[in-house]
Simulated scan of single mutants.
Amino acid sequence: MREKAHPHFGGRQMDVSERRRGIVELAVREGYVEANRLAHELGVNISTVRRDLDVLASDGLLRRTHGGARPTAGLAVDVPYAQKVRERSTEKAAIGLRAAEDVRDGDTVMLDSGSTTYQVAVALRQKCLTVITNDLRIAKFVSTDPAARLLVTGGELLGSVFTLVGHHTTSFLESYAADWAFLGADAVDVRAGITNTNTFEVPIKRAMLAAAHKTVVVTDSTKFGLTALARVATLGEVDEIVTDGGLDAEVAETFGSQIVYARVGEA
């Protein structure tokens, strides 16, 4: 009898990029992936899996071993939005409050997609602002605030994170100037800077950074010391990084005055 597919893959056909992302995520979760079993669970031949593993290894996402692969140390991977919302929700709410403190009535704010930037939107509620976002969850929330003027970018839906991406999105953002850009981050490292698990969102984040007078990265302390696939910005391109007090003091020192701590417990 055929063994049931690993629940991580959901027993469905995936395109190449989705399959490779799934392999990396599984390797990070389980510590090791075996080529033969991947071929069985994905319903592809072993040469396809070996090719996937070789490409992922050349990209620095996996480390090849005999018969399989292990995750690269310090690698950040994409997490489903529903899981992101549940994780470290208290810290994210506090980060949102701290990040929003200096925003004043009349300001124009760009909000990147993500569960932490969503909390910035929550903290900004009832301030008289112009809010520009490519995040549909944020847009839905802001649309219920009578004090806000909302502008939503065009673009193609990246369904897993409720985000609009693509040329139309970046073109829209390039048409505006903002006082603030609040960016999420999948990984933050003193050498690699701000990095992201996918390449689709990078041009969007770059456009927001270029359009704003001040750029603030909002991310919880678990994202520090990690690197992800795609470079978003160097540390020199952002003004502040708002995080929670779980960040190791020695790590925080390497970022200097860029680190701003949220008061967790007061959110």
Rank of each mutant, 00 (worst) to 15 (best):
G245E: 01
R70N: 08
G193I: 11
A93G: 15
G193Y: 07
A228M: 01
T130A: 06
R125G: 11
K92E: 00
D248C: 03
G166V: 00
V251L: 01
D135G: 11
E266F: 11
V49H: 09
A212N: 10
G193A: 03
T65C: 13
N45F: 11
S160K: 13
E240W: 12
D107Q: 01
E25L: 08
R21H: 11
V122L: 12
R19W: 09
A181R: 05
K214R: 15
D59H: 14
V49S: 07
A121R: 09
L158I: 05
V264R: 06
L136Q: 04
V85L: 13
L75E: 11
Y261F: 13
I95M: 05
P80L: 09
R86D: 14
I95K: 04
A139L: 10
A177T: 14
D220S: 07
D102R: 08
T153Q: 10
L157W: 04
R51C: 01
A230Q: 12
A57I: 01
E253P: 06
T215N: 00
T197W: 06
A249L: 10
L61A: 07
D135Q: 06
F182M: 08
A187F: 10
H213W: 04
T243G: 08
E18Y: 09
V33C: 00
A94I: 09
G159F: 12
V85G: 09
T219V: 15
T222W: 02
Q258A: 11
M1L: 12
V216C: 09
G154R: 12
H168E: 14
E237Y: 00
R98S: 01
E25Y: 00
G43K: 09
D244L: 10
A139Q: 02
D179M: 06
E174C: 13
T108W: 04
F224W: 06
G159A: 15
A178F: 08
V232G: 07
A69V: 12
P71G: 11
V77Y: 03
Q119T: 02
A252Q: 05
M110F: 13
R88Q: 07
V251Y: 10
V161D: 05
P80Q: 03
V216E: 00
L164A: 01
G193E: 04
A262G: 02
G256P: 04
T48C: 03
E156F: 13
V190G: 05
G236F: 07
T116N: 01
T169Q: 02
Q119F: 00
W180A: 03
L75R: 15
S89C: 10
G31T: 08
A207C: 03
L226A: 02
L75K: 12
E18F: 12
G74M: 00
A252E: 08
D145Q: 10
V161W: 12
E18N: 11
V190L: 05
P203Y: 07
N134A: 12
R86W: 12
A57M: 11
R19K: 10
D189K: 06
T163Q: 09
A187L: 04
R191F: 06
V188I: 13
V28K: 06
M208R: 05
R37I: 07
A187N: 10
T197M: 00
P7E: 05
